[in-house]
């Protein structure tokens, strides 16, 4: 789901960088001292999760967890994802430095949007509504990231629909898996640490 170096034109890279910077500043400004450890933990989880490959059929897919990061961190998902992607680019040549802003937006923006869309469900005290909200957030964040990748590739000159089709079809299993994982983690947190579900960094 990352875009590599050398694919996108400078205008898209600059726009992505600007949006990522804005999101990161908002995230950092809204972050209280008490929330910093949580952001650190989620950054580490995101950094690790993208490197875990699950073999499915002849290929393999990796977890993204951006939906979960969005639910637990709100706006702080921007700085968290930015740092994790920077380290992935430096250590694993995953994405790249010049494309870091665009990749941050691709991962963080859908996570934030789906968090806000599902917030009434996630804040609900009813278990199944919370479950539906977390599944949609997990599923939708990956779906949104796939669409954004296709949009970026389309802006870079590729035709949108073939690229979007290939990317989205390839990520259908991970969307479902992400939805289920997000659902289980949020349901678990609801039982053991319900205050974690309301990030209050929103």
């Amino acid at each position: 789901m990352h875009i590599s170096e050398g694919i996108l034109p400078t205008t898209i890279l600059a726009t992505g960088g600007l949006i990522a910077l804005t999101g990161t500043i908002i995230g950092l400004m809204r972050m209280e001292q008490e929330q910093v450890p949580r952001v650190g933990i989620m950054t580490a989880a995101f950094f690790v999760a993208s490197l875990i490959h699950v073999p499915i059929g002849p290929s393999s897919i990796h977890l993204v967890l951006n939906g979960l990061v969005g639910i637990l961190l709100g706006w702080a998902c921007f700085p968290a994802i930015l740092v994790a992607l920077l380290l992935q680019a430096l250590f694993f040549q995953f994405g790249g430095i010049s494309v870091l802003g665009v990749n941050t937006v691709i991962m963080a923006l859908p996570a934030l949007i789906f968090y806000f869309l599902c917030k009434p469900l996630i804040n609900s005290k009813t278990g199944y509504l919370l479950g539906i909200g977390s599944f949609i957030s997990g599923f939708g964040a990956v779906l949104g990231a796939g669409i954004l990748v296709a949009v970026c590739l389309a802006l870079a000159g590729k035709s949108f629909f073939p690229a979007a089709k290939v990317i989205l079809i390839a990520h259908i299993p991970i969307m479902i898996i992400e939805g289920i994982i997000t659902l289980f983690i949020i349901q678990f947190l609801r039982k053991v640490k319900p205050e974690m579900i309301n990030p209050s960094i929103t």
Binding site: E34, I41, A45, H53, M196
Partner: peptide, 28 residues
């Protein structure tokens, strides 16, 4: 916060133990 850290760390380690051989990047 220590409790939160503990919980999240446990979850992360659990993922690592479930998929020990799958720690691979997806760069090129």
């Amino acid at each position: 916060f220590y409790k939160i850290n503990h919980l999240a760390m446990m979850a992360m380690l659990a993922i690592l133990f479930i998929f020990p051989s799958l720690l691979l990047a997806h760069g090129t």
